[in-house]
């Protein structure tokens, strides 16, 4: 686990954690959860969110350490500071959850999402789509005479902005991975 170089969670004494716990303001937090890669562990995490009425904006999961049987789940969630604290504490209660990190509190962090989009069109629209893709550093990963499939990575806002631009140009399908995130520095 130490190989993954993840800082321990913030405590009440942490300089970052000065928000009033019982404020009514909703915040958006990115959580990184290291779990034992065992059957049903994702269901436990998702069941906690649905059972207790917490929000999930996005969720990604994959094994990150094969020999150590560790998977990393990245969840973007929203809630009041009290709810966010509860989510972290409740996640910590799940037996196969080893570490819970609030990257928003422990930050700064890098967040990336990948999306692939199919844009169908001909003529001027097709040219414009390609031009915008270039500006957004999206790659063409498949092409026919009447369509492109673009691959784009970035923060969710960038992907959203690109999708908005593609919509009038013939966007027909989109698949997004959800956010993966890591703390900056060492």
């Amino acid at each position: 686990m130490s190989a993954l170089k993840i800082k321990k969670g913030a405590t009440k004494h942490s300089a970052y954690n000065l928000r009033p716990t019982f404020s009514e303001v909703e915040e958006r937090h990115t959580l990184a959860i290291l779990v034992e890669n065992e059957p049903g562990v994702l269901a436990r995490v998702i069941g906690l969110f649905s059972g207790r009425g917490y929000n999930i904006e996005s969720l990604t999961v994959a094994e990150v350490d094969h020999t150590g049987h560790l998977s990393r789940i990245t969840i973007v969630t929203t809630g009041t500071p009290q709810v966010i604290e509860q989510i972290k504490a409740q996640l910590g209660r799940i037996v196969p959850v080893y570490e819970v990190h609030d990257l928003t509190v422990e930050g700064p962090s890098v967040e990336r999402e990948l999306a692939i989009m199919k844009v169908v069109g001909t003529g001027e629209k097709r040219v414009e789509a390609l031009r915008l893709a270039d500006i957004f550093r999206a790659n063409v990963v498949d092409s026919t005479l009447e369509s492109f499939v673009f691959e784009i990575t970035g923060v969710p806002e960038k992907i959203g902005a690109f999708a908005d631009l593609m919509r009038p140009l013939g966007l027909t399908e989109i698949a997004r991975t959800g956010v993966a995130a890591l703390l900056r520095g060492d």
């Binding site: 009440k12 716990t21 019982f22 009290q82 604290e85 509860q86 504490a89 409740q90 910590g92 209660r93």
Partner: peptide
């Protein structure tokens, strides 16, 4: 003993 009990309902001044 359960960290999730603390601040769940009532804010603790000394947790």
């Amino acid at each position: 003993i359960d960290p999730s009990s603390i601040n769940k309902v009532i804010k603790a001044d000394i947790p």
